[in-house]
């Protein structure tokens, strides 16, 4: 009788890595849908280009590292990185911007460190920060919601804008692009305007935060809650991050509501929700103990507020996440849970 003798346990729950990644992708769907509703088809073109580039770079990197392609491409991790990057970059961004970002994310941030599971920094955020620093104009050129610009962007139009630089009808996207609400607020504040005045003057601000943005952020929140319910992510990081962001924003807002935006504005602007539920929770680069996760989240929340309020960039989620990534191993070491039967300190 030829017998197989692996180590115990001999049974398995059947959970799979690719399934985990797919669930995260599903959770992004509501926000992507709203994105299309408010900002047109640009985001879909972004996603397509990014995914295509990610799979290509992943395949090349795997081939060079002599790893089998099938299973590693099939784990959806590269796809997820690409989709997150596409969501972080402006729709109608030139195609090469996406490709460069994806290249750094997949090749530099992931494979040069040893592939999935070995990267100390969040690959999507590395890719984003590289293009943000290298091509600040392209990365900060966002379209306003269609309702404001009056320009509805079709799939063909978006594709044409991404590939050639002009929309299908010949309009240059630059002509209709505007600063994001966070960016706008920041520039205006530095010119000594007060918040009530800034918001009143500009249609880009909606009921809660940025027009359109607020709903997309709420959609990220919904998707994130579903992930927590499905136990794909733990609640600690998003809750800690959003709570600390809201708290610190609240304190300053109460001190001077004309110079500091409201907590709600901070929570529903920029990449707060996307960052809290989908980026900071990347398990590879985040802290893995429960107490560590809470500290990790708090750190991000505080850094986001600091960068948004006093830093050189209007949005700070990417930098905050990368900075906290550096701290994660240390956090893990010092926040080990109390082991069964042992005291806290033994």
């Amino acid at each position: 009788m030829q017998l197989n003798t692996p180590s115990s346990p001999h049974i398995h729950s059947g959970d799979q890595l690719s399934q985990l990644m797919q669930r995260v992708l599903w959770a992004l769907l509501p926000a992507i849908t709203l994105y299309v509703v408010f900002f047109g088809w640009g985001i879909i073109v972004n996603i397509l280009i990014a995914v295509l580039a990610a799979l290509t770079f992943e395949a090349i990197a795997l081939r060079l590292r002599k790893r089998p392609l099938g299973s590693n491409l099939g784990d959806f991790s590269a796809v997820l990185t690409a989709v997150l990057l596409a969501l972080a970059l402006p729709p109608l961004a030139p195609w090469w911007l996406l490709v460069v970002a994806v290249f750094f994310a997949i090749v530099f941030a992931k494979h040069l460190y040893g592939g999935l599971g070995f990267n100390p920094f969040n690959p999507a955020m590395i890719g984003y920060v590289v293009v943000l620093i290298s091509f600040p104009r392209e990365v900060t050129t966002w379209l306003p919601p269609e309702a404001i610009s009056g320009e509805s962007i079709s799939f063909v139009g978006a594709l044409s804008a991404t590939l050639t630089g002009t929309l299908a009808n010949g309009i240059n996207p630059d002509a209709i692009s505007m600063a994001t609400p966070l960016d706008h607020l920041k520039t205006q504040l530095t010119q000594n305007h007060v918040i009530s005045e800034i918001i009143h003057d500009n249609t880009i601000f909606g009921q809660l935060a940025g027009s359109g943005w607020e709903w997309i952020n709420l959609a990220f929140l919904v998707g994130g809650c579903w992930l927590i319910y499905k136990k794909v992510i733990h609640w600690h990081i998003p809750v800690a991050m959003l709570a600390s962001l809201a708290l610190i924003a609240g304190v300053f807002w109460l001190i001077d509501s004309e110079r500091y935006a409201s907590p709600l504005f901070h929570l529903l602007s920029g990449g707060a929700m996307l960052g809290a539920f989908f980026i900071a929770t990347d398990p590879v680069t985040a802290s893995t103990t429960n107490r560590g996760r809470i500290l990790f989240g708090i750190g991000i929340g505080i850094l986001v507020y600091i960068i948004r309020s006093w830093g050189g960039y209007p949005e700070g989620v990417a930098f905050a996440v990368l900075l906290m990534n550096m701290l994660a191993p240390t956090l893990d070491y010092y926040t080990q849970p109390r082991v069964f039967g042992r005291g806290r300190n033994s």
């Binding site: 398995h12 299973s71 999935l116 985040a286 080990q336 849970p337 082991v339």
Partner: peptide, 25 residues
């Protein structure tokens, strides 16, 4: 049965820590 020859990379998802009865990592 599980054929453990087919392992993927650890993504530190923490599922293992959630189920560890000793509260290890």
């Amino acid at each position: 049965l599980l054929d453990k020859q087919q392992a993927h990379a650890c993504i530190r998802c923490g599922s293992c820590a959630d189920v560890c009865p000793i509260n290890l990592l």
